Every structure is written in structure tokens, then in C-alpha cells.
Simulated assay, not measured.
Amino acid sequence: MPYKSILKNKETKINIKRSEFIGNCSKVNSEQQAKEFIKSISELYKNANHNCWAYFVTDENREYFNYTDNGEPSGSAGKPIFGEIQKMNLNNIVCVVTRFFGGVKLGVRGLIDAYSKTTFETVKNSKIVEYRNAFIYGIVTDYSQHAEIERLLKREIGWEIIETKFTENVYLEISIDEEKIEPIKNIIEKKSIKLDFLRQEEKPYKVRD
């Protein structure tokens, strides 16, 4: 099933009443990867006052989530970070917000706003994309059918040719979006000598407006 997460972490810094908040997020595929990312950021900013975090992961159809305030008042940090993840309908993501205390207390409401804002800005800067399954096939066809396959595929969306080799026959490696498997396979099967499933990959796509 398609889901939304980030493309690539873009560390984001926000100053609020002399406190510095630093946001980092990562796209992950397991709870273990989420924990490893949290550990890496916590070690990077081991001198910070707080490294608060939250994650939400779906792995083999099971959901895993957790969050912590890491010494901030209860409910003022981890839960707001997790709340932003939920609001943006993100999956397979971990966010860590680091705080260097600047000497001015923000109060619980101020902390909730600060951790929420830092998470939102970090996710936005890291680019939200939609991840979908793509299926990679190897195709062997003769030269006469190669041009016909390309002509027919140009009428469709949801595919791309990864590799082409010209030898005695023509070999194509093609990536097909999950929802376009049947119509595109139908075209290829009629025009190819051999069609082999090679692997499945997860691919990022720009989120539709």
C-alpha cells in the first residue's frame, strides 16, 4: 500500500526565546532502524539538555510507535512530535527534536508549540513523498517487437525502462508501479520472448496536490 514519509533528512534549527531547537527526521523501515537513528542523533547532540523523539513504523503489517519527553514536562515534547507525524499522515518515520536550553522557561504550552513547530518545519524541509511498490521485470524480445513494445508503452503511465541491452535479441529491464502491473504486463507478454520477475523495490514519488 502507498504511504507518505520523507525523502531525505534536512536538519532544521529554530530559535525560540533563546532556546535552540534542532529537528532531524529519517525515513525508516523497521523499529530497530528508528531506534538506531534516535541513538545517532542523541550521541551527536549528547551535550544538549533534551533529545525528544517519536516514531511510527509499519513492518510486516504490524504498527510500532513510541515517543518520549526526555526530561521535559510530561506531554510537552514527545507527544507533540508524534502528533505532527499523525497530522501529516506519515508512516515509517522517526523524528528527533534536540533542545539547548537558553535560560528562559517556555511553560508547557510554549514547549508543545515549539516541539510541534520544529517537527513540522523539519518534515516540510525534508520533503514529503509517497512511497509505492515497484516491480522490476526482465524482458527478452526480438528486434522487430522491441519498437512495438516501446510504442505501446508510451500510451501508458507508471513504468520506466531501467536498462536496455542489444545483443542477439533485445533485453529490457523495466520498473512497473504496483497499480499498473496488469495492463503493462499484458502489453509486454504479447510482444516478448521471455518475461521474468526480478525483484520488488520501494520508490518515492512526488506527493500529488
Rank of each mutant, 00 (worst) to 15 (best):
K46P: 08
N51V: 01
C52N: 00
F56E: 07
F56P: 04
T58N: 09
T58W: 04
D59P: 09
E63Q: 11
Y64M: 05
T68E: 11
T68L: 09
G71F: 01
G71E: 03
E72D: 01
P73L: 03
G75K: 02
K79V: 06
K79Y: 04
F82Y: 11
F82H: 07
E84D: 10
I85T: 01
K87V: 08
K87G: 06
M88W: 03
I93N: 01
V94A: 07
V94D: 02
V97E: 02
F100W: 07
K105I: 07
L106Q: 06
G110Q: 08
I112G: 04
A114I: 01
Y115R: 00
K117Y: 05
F120W: 12
E121K: 11
V123M: 05
S126G: 10
K127S: 11
K127V: 10
K127Y: 10
R132K: 15
R132I: 15
N133S: 13
F135D: 09
F135I: 07
G138H: 14
G138P: 14
V140H: 15
V140T: 15
D142Q: 12
D142R: 06
Q145H: 13
R151H: 14
R155T: 13
E156F: 15
I157N: 15
W159F: 13
E160K: 13
E160N: 14
I162S: 11
I162M: 10
T164Y: 13
T167D: 15
E168V: 07
N169Q: 12
Y171H: 15
E173C: 14
I176R: 06
I176P: 03
I176Q: 02
E179Y: 06
I181S: 13
I181F: 12
